[in-house]
Design a protein around this nucleic acid. Structure first.
Lengths: 396, 396
DNA sequence: GTGAAAGCGCTAACAG
DNA sequence: CTGTTAGCGCTTTCAC
């Protein structure tokens, strides 16, 4: 993992400073030497029929043994002659046999597939950049592979109700378990899954009555840390950018913001709570709202790092420089936040580790795997460490 | 769709200018009023058993008719008494019946599921930001919904070979069709899918011998347009940032770059071709490489808009301002490129429409749907229109 | 217009 | 250790 030297990591008691003002490294630039031209496509063939694939019966016939034995050999059952097993495995390989999942699922009642439900609506995609999800997926998969489980992302379209979608997915027995994200404050998916006894874990808390397995980023802690840091710099008017949807993390973040203020002896001012979409445009709007206030806040804490880009832009248009004229603390460290100018003060976490924990938590709730994973006793709040950038240095 | 007024859209013969220097809008900022604190989770219940779901047999028993009739009623067959159908539908609703997909698939040989294969490796995720994929997914789904097809994203992990993964997905009969992305110059997935006669469409050309259905962004045309524009501004030393992987779009983009140079009467200089990862860090590296050259190129064309962020950063560190001291043209217009400072000159496309076309192209190759969709005669190059930002105005 | 029955590919139970 | 068989849930003949 590449790390920009201009960030100082502040985690727990450790405080490290890096030298230099450079955000990146110049290593690994290679000159390309592509000379060939791409080949234009010719006419298209038609795809009329799917080839019949080889079934377990074909395999058995080919080996002149029964399908039961083949099945047992393939599934690693103990009561099968090693030599026979070898022959079966060999034949399976040469014939290109892959078990039909529908057949297995129908028989076993499991699909060996886990779904990660992500919503593609703009509003709910609070943490929805793929450079968020991709490493999380990677971590999840690294665990699932050990158990021959496949991960698929379930894409609930904009024009479909998440509840209806979930009902279909669950009813069809499409997956053995679910990871849900973008948890709402009141999220009907949770009682639904609990009632159906579908194993699941939520990426994000909710306010739902009744408990369920979840992991959430430390929105509360980061907000407290950020506000406390700004108060320490002498800031008094600290704005906060929160989502304008009912996604629960907004409530949690705001709670932390208020706790941080209280800790610093500063009175909460509702006018400084600015709700906007958790993206670049939302950040632009937050900056606009700040500019209208008199006196203008001297600092702002954002629930989402993408907001920083739009916020920077609006301030840039006004000749206001973050880190010089105003203090900005973003949320999650991302490639972008490292390469912004000025680099963004924000919080770091290992998305891959988060994915691993999500997977382990899910498996601990599944009958087939619970022996391998200790039951999670309660929700998990994922710690994040402060990464000091250039955007929040000045005291007012 | 929100549109930043500072961009002038230049598409075909139309040329529109917007006034003002603002990149965004201040509308729709709402003050939040979240007062309640989130509820902490209590202890966890254990999830030991999945509830037995209602089968078609249960439904039949409940209605005192045969399962065959129930099936026909649910599937909209004509030879069923309207009254009976009504009773069945009603009962299905009240009992919460959802057909088991494995049963259907086993019987019908289709899964009613389409897979969109995305690779989570950093290197291959050339166009891998979710604000790319999400709208594409949305478009795809809007078409699939008409045919009761579900879209799932197939996540090929970093530690798994795409070929092995694809083989498993296909062999298991997990999906009826596939959309593959991040097409490599020589992509073994393509002959594999062609040979197995699995319906698919590729997002991205390849150099593969033999034809197949694909849609690709106009990397060639955009490169030509960008270079021609820069040449028109008087630039002579124009660098190009391309991917450092074998993803085919790099070759195509470079081809367009060379064509643009040739058109402008400028000799191709291999030293100006800079290969780097298609992300912020890569852009940083490209800027580094440019800074080392003497004389420094006066303009640069990037194959990926994320590179612009890192490139901006490196130039910022050196006090070099894009749009004033150097000309930058990025690739795809994104929320980020609109909110960068200066805004990025780049190219616009409708990702949703792209998704729609992908879906339609795929369906045209599937026996069950080909009647509804005209066969695509060859690969499709998706047009993009120039969006003039602030990053490329000056002639040197 | 409906019921009965076969069978998709697979695994598990049981008999030998 | 291996073969036989039942049956997972569903759709689709075919008979009536």
């Amino acid at each position: 993992m590449w790390e920009g030297p201009s960030h100082r990591i502040v985690g727990g008691v450790n405080l490290t400073f890096a030298s230099g003002a450079s955000a990146g490294t110049c290593a690994n630039v290679r000159l390309a030497n592509f000379t060939e031209k791409y080949m234009p496509a010719r006419g298209l063939v038609n795809f009329f029929s799917r080839e019949k694939s080889v079934s377990i019966r074909d395999l058995a016939r080919h080996l002149n043994i029964s399908i039961g034995t083949v099945s047992r050999a393939l599934n690693g059952k103990s009561d099968v002659n090693p030599e026979t097993r070898e022959r079966v495995l060999q034949a399976a390989k040469t014939l290109g046999y892959v078990p039909n999942q529908s057949g297995r699922s129908l028989r076993q009642g499991t699909t060996n597939t886990i779904g990660f439900m992500i919503e593609s609506t703009v509003e709910t995609a609070e943490i929805g950049d793929s450079f968020f999800f991709m490493p999380v997926f990677g971590g999840v998969q690294s665990v699932f592979r050990r158990h021959q489980l496949d991960l698929v992302a379930l894409l609930c379209g904009t024009d479909e109700d998440p509840g209806v979608y979930l009902n279909r997915v669950v009813g069809r027995r499409f997956v053995d378990g679910l990871i849900i994200s973008a948890t709402m404050r009141e999220d009907p998916r949770i009682p639904f899954l609990l009632e159906r006894k579908i194993p699941f874990v939520a990426l994000g808390r909710s306010a739902a009555d009744g408990s369920f397995p979840w992991i959430d980023l430390d929105f509360e802690g980061t907000a407290i840390t950020a506000v406390t840091r700004l108060v320490g710099f002498g800031h008094k008017r600290i704005a906060v950018g929160v989502p304008n949807s009912d996604v629960n993390l907004g409530h949690v973040f705001l709670s932390g913001y208020r706790q941080g203020l209280a800790k610093g002896g500063i009175e909460f001012n509702p006018d400084l709570v600015l709700a906007a979409p958790s993206n670049e445009e939302g950040g632009y709007q937050v900056a606009c709202a700040m500019l209208e206030q008199k006196p203008m806040p001297t600092a702002v804490v954002l629930v989402n790092e993408n907001m920083a880009i739009g916020l920077y832009r609006r301030f840039y248009e006004m000749g206001i420089h973050p880190g010089r004229d105003i203090a900005v603390i973003g949320f999650r460290e991302s490639t972008q936040s490292r390469f912004l100018s000025p680099t963004l003060t924000c919080f770091r976490l290992s998305l891959r580790d988060l994915g691993i924990k999500l997977a382990e938590t899910l498996l601990s709730t599944m009958p087939a795997f619970e022996n391998n994973y200790p039951a999670v006793k309660s929700g998990i709040i994922w710690p994040m460490e402060l990464v000091v950038g250039e955007s929040d240095r000045p005291a007012p």
